[in-house]
Design a protein around this nucleic acid. Structure first.
Lengths: 328, 328
DNA sequence: TTGTATGCGTTATCAG
DNA sequence: CTGATAACGCATACAA
């Protein structure tokens, strides 16, 4: 591999001049510039990025954390972030935490070892105090997930409102027995707020809150199936169910349909995200403006890196929209 | 940030010894090792990966190319690759080509500039001769897509067979007018072979091949909807359609259902991949062993990097399975 | 406008 | 078993 030295030698110039040409610095004669370019061409030279990283203390790489990329909500987010980063000349490293506290912490080392310029977290598994120390090593931006204690740029949606809108919709359809199902993460403000929105809507309508109708640990289609069976087995069954993701809702819908339940008559279902499959099965759902939050978060990150901005709290809040379909 | 020098000073030892401890080299007294570890701990030291990359000429990073991460087929592949890479201590850089020749070429620079140790391609947009020169800069492995001219490790499925199985299944259900729809990429051996499998099955059954029933440029749910309308508008309609992806099949299914067509009576549909939504809508499909090819490809890549194996042709072929559901 | 010298933080070589 | 020194490839302060 040709180095900058080789180019310099061939062009009969100094490394410095070559470096100036590479980095588009001023004060280089057109004549010499031509010489350098020709030599680079001839040697098929390309700057070594490891050397450049070391020298500039910059990696032009950003890590994005997601629980798992196969969740359409997150893959959509990553698609947008990846394209946006690429446009701005940044690489994107994908970190899948698999809902594991350990894995999340392990990946945080990337920032510490200077493998990336910054981190975007779309979910948080650990308590904020576990994550906070890493701010000493570089910027962190929250996207989707949020946390009061985290004084960092945050692009998010008000999940109290999201859950409220959904639950409210079910109430307006005449339901009084509404189950709630979600993932389960004590460190997640997002999860906490959704639950709050649900309870708020119930309370406002003077409806009963029933512990038995709170179903947790639901992340996937498979979990949704399990939850349907749990509901079907109840003595006192709910007539509608609010879910924290379209995947779980799809699972419930599928198993219900397989058991010849009629949706929404036997059970109304509302999802969350408006993933592609929601349209397929006619699932009512709460749409989140994924493209927008992804873009804003990545923009925020790049701006922070490039202007070496100090990390401080800056909240950008966007809005939900209810997509009404056949499942309610 | 503490450097190896700082640690050495604090421990009253040389950088060399510290480095030995970090890299678990033999020939270090337990006594000194303890001293070094203590100093590292005290300074909260962590090796700088840029420096290490430069010195070792290794990045421990692998780039994975996909057309777009939101396609469940590819996100599934990336999920598995990411986890496998992580286990082995490698990072994964995500490159979305968006079906663009230009973007694919641009990303190839990653290998040239030594930002990654190797490349895994799950699709190819350019002709192989455009890509081949980059082999001078590092290993490339093919996963899913394949190419006769590419003398590199390849993990793939025999797509002639896949399409044949699917088309054959439709024929066995009594269909004689079978449409074919796919993406469109002249550089793709995969696409070519699928089409071949389709024609082979028709020919074997002595069925008519009708140009008008060949629909191209189909990648997404949206494209599927368009294709349904195209089929509905035909004078001489096919009674079944073979598609190259579950997404396209879902689009057709959705639009057909919206137009009150009965599936499979008015139109039988067969998909490809067995994506999660296939189960939801009861789509018959050809399952590809995604986890397996992803794991094998990543394994192959890491083995090549770590043993500095020369790049040569090595084909690993896996098999399909027909998943029969209600859509046929 | 150009060149010289230095350092970014490691690890490998070699001598002791 | 340990340490001094060079080298990885580049960009920048400073001198000319």
């Amino acid at each position: 591999m040709a180095t900058i030295q080789d180019v310099a030698k061939l062009a009969r110039l100094s490394r410095t001049t070559v470096s100036r040409v590479i980095n588009h610095h001023p004060y280089v004669t057109d004549e010499k510039k031509r010489l350098v370019l020709k030599a680079m061409e001839e040697l098929n030279y390309v700057p070594n990025s490891s050397a450049r990283r070391l020298r500039k203390q910059q990696t032009e790489t950003i890590a994005v954390y997601v629980p798992r990329i196969t969740n359409p909500f997150f893959s959509q987010m990553v698609e947008v972030m990846g394209n946006h980063a690429s446009e701005k000349g940044y690489q994107l490293i994908l970190c899948q935490t698999s809902y594991s506290r350990n894995k999340e912490i392990n990946y945080l080392e990337l920032l510490k070892t200077k493998q990336v310029d910054g981190l975007i977290l779309t979910s948080i598994e650990n308590e904020w105090r576990e994550i906070k120390p890493y701010l000493n090593y570089g910027p962190i931006v929250l996207c989707n997930e949020y946390n009061d204690d985290a004084d960092i740029p945050t692009v998010y949606l008000n999940q109290v409102e999201g859950a409220y809108i959904g639950t409210r919709h079910l109430i307006e359809q005449g339901h009084t027995k509404i189950a709630y199902c979600s993932g389960d993460n004590s460190a997640s403000r997002l999860a906490f707020d959704r639950f709050k929105g649900y309870k708020q809507a119930l309370k406002e309508a003077g409806l009963e809150f029933n512990d038995k109708w709170i179903l947790t640990n639901a992340f996937s289609i498979k979990d949704g199936k399990r939850i349907f069976r749990a509901i079907a087995d109840m003595e006192d069954r709910p007539t509608a169910v609010f879910t924290g993701s379209d995947e779980v809702a799809s699972g419930i819908w599928l198993e219900a349909t397989n058991h010849y339940w009629s949706i929404p008559d036997d059970l109304a279902i509302i999802g969350f995200d408006d993933q592609p499959q929601a349209e397929l099965i006619g699932l009512t759902t709460i749409e989140q403006p994924i493209d927008e939050i992804a873009k804003r978060a990545m923009g925020q990150m790049i701006e922070t890196i490039e202007n070496k901005l100090p990390i401080k709290k800056k909240e950008i809040q966007l809005n939900f929209q209810l997509i009404k379909r056949r499942s309610t």
